[in-house]
Design a protein around this nucleic acid. Structure first.
Lengths: 357, 357
DNA sequence: CTGTTAGCGCTTTCAT
DNA sequence: ATGAAAGCGCTAACAG
């Protein structure tokens, strides 16, 4: 019995195979120039000893430089896309020592032109990978077609366009989240006769695919379990408080029997604020995403549940996936649905103070 | 303007300060033998340029070896403590290249003697840190007292004994989880007059502190919002199905008005199984932890909600905390409450297939 | 008190 | 097809 070191190194493999470290490295990375005989011998030892490379040494020695580009909506602190950016920043910091540079490009999610302009920037740069939120479908098709030609992998986050077959997708299962929202709103309760769906109208962007899927899921639950429920749809305006006030006032006056509401975008606070201002506190409201304003409304008990989807993990994992694929040549899972987290007044603090990465 | 490399290295700092890399390293690690003058100059440059060491190079060059010991209950696949072990394994794998060895010691959570025996093993070994679940309070006091004398840091997971002032704690906020459980069980609902608390009786171990806190939280919510509710406590037996059957049958026959129940340990499936066997499906049941059997019952709709506490993250983060403290000399947060995750039939799959680390 | 130097395990280039 | 050797950035022992 000869004794082996705690952790097997390339040097050990080489010694056992009677070759040099260079040869072992060549078979490890499949870069040819190795005789059949050596290859087989080395591979055998490799699997027998279950060789695991020292990732620190690998990272340090590697000379290759990589650039990844992210194309995401701009955002201010407290907004959904800002949390996405936090994940990008976290990943970027980690990847720096791996010689990976992350370049962030932002567009205006209400302005398709700003997205179009970014396309060229990306294509000229020819990065090693792209992480993006496919907010504008047509333009995303154009961009990804070019990326495919240049053989640049891309990862979607937040929402998926499955026919474009990205390397990977990280985001919510929108349909099921809507289904869950309905259950949380209605199950075992009284006052289920009428409910309201508040839809924030966004200029310059038609109803997103994601919102639609959430609504479908929501309606499915209702038709499954409470088919008699009447659903009222109310259009509200994200950037016009006065107009909203009037709309909501009219609505609640008109349908006093409505005690339940839901929003499928992240603007639940718009409704919550109205309820607060008008001293209404018998409406059960459900919304999405931990925007600062939503969280405040949740804590004040104006929103009953918020469904969240770990935005900072979506972008973090998206970049790591690119890295795994390009650098470590690993297989990547195509679809990664994020957990649908249910937040209430009682558990929100623990959730927020707990940073996963 | 002289140009600096992308990433500042020790060598760059040394050049700017007109000293050698050895001296820079000495001030970085506070190991003395540096003149006041050099020290100040170097420190100035360090902060100005915001020097961040290359963690890969650091890890590779470091020659020190460390040993951490974990002292946790033994468990089989599908159990709570098995998930805790998964976190340990994950951390151990990551730490291997940092010259850190993680040695796992297991005890029988129903047998104090097995815990006592492990104490000696640990003290003889004199590891660089200990991660443990303080299941047996008296023995934990004895162990940690010795560790303190030997200046060995220790981290608690799962439950805390705050007066022992561990380096850090990772686990649930038991009281608030109980409060939340009550809300999920009762809020806005009918049939709140009578509810049952099922307590699994464990041989050899008195009611744990954790369970007690959960019950307190639960009762607090009820006294806050539904003070008229009658709470029935039922003792069940984890390892005696026949006995359980009889107890539960008697109980439900005696109190047919009870439509809600909760368990504060992880044995909700015991009740769920009874309900299944007896074709009862109008009882709303809440439990804790994603044991395989609990998850099955949740999916079959026999359990309505499961509260979970990310066991595999507790142990993972606990070990990383020891590492941060011992190796990178960083400050560690004393108390780290885990998110209280609310799982239902609808979101359990996404939660389980999503591995965070 | 300071500078020099030999590694850590792996990658990659250059001879052979 | 293969081996030798130079480094990646940092640590730590040693010589002065």
């Amino acid at each position: 019995m000869c004794k082996l070191p705690d952790k097997i190194r390339i040097k050990d493999i080489a010694a056992l195979a009677g070759v040099s470290t260079g040869t072992v490295d060549r078979v490890l990375h499949n870069r040819g120039e190795v005789s059949q005989k050596s290859r087989e011998k080395i591979e055998k030892i490799l699997t027998e000893l279950n060789y695991q490379p020292n990732i620190y040494a690998t990272a340090l020695a590697s000379k290759k430089k990589y650039t990844f580009i992210t194309l995401l909506p701009e955002a201010k602190k407290g907004e959904y896309w800002y949390d996405i950016k936090i994940g990008v920043d976290n990943a970027a910091k980690e990847l720096l020592d791996l010689n990976i540079n992350v370049q962030q490009i932002f567009f205006d999610q209400y302005n398709e032109t700003s997205f179009i302009q970014s396309i060229n920037t990306i294509l000229i740069q020819s990065p090693d990978g792209v992480l993006l939120a496919p907010v504008f479908k047509e333009q995303t098709i154009i961009l990804t077609k070019e990326l495919r030609i240049k053989n640049i992998p891309f990862v979607f986050i937040d929402s998926d366009i499955s026919e474009l077959n990205a390397l990977s997708y990280f985001g919510m299962h929108s349909f099921k989240s809507g289904y869950l929202a309905a259950k949380l709103l209605l199950k075992d309760e009284k006052n289920n006769s009428d409910i309201a769906i508040f839809q924030a109208y966004r200029t310059g962007n038609s109803e997103s695919n994601q919102t639609e899927l959430r609504i479908n899921g929501f309606k499915k639950y209702i038709s499954d379990y409470y088919p008699d429920t009447v659903i009222h749809s109310v259009k509200i305006y994200a950037h016009d408080t006065d107009k909203n006030d009037k709309i909501l006032k009219d609505f609640f006056n008109h349908y006093p029997q409505i005690k339940k509401g839901v929003t499928f975008n992240s603007r639940a606070y718009l409704i919550a604020d109205y309820l607060t201002t008008n001293y209404i506190d018998d409406i059960k409201l459900i919304g999405y995403d931990l925007l600062e304003k939503n969280v405040i409304a949740l804590k004040k008990n104006k929103i009953c549940y918020l469904l969240a989807q770990r935005p900072e993990i979506q972008s973090y994992k998206g970049l790591k996936a690119l890295c795994e694929y390009k650098i470590f040549k690993n297989k990547i899972k195509r679809t990664n649905f994020m957990p649908i987290d249910i937040l209430t007044q009682e558990n929100i603090d623990f959730y927020q103070e707990f940073t996963i990465i």
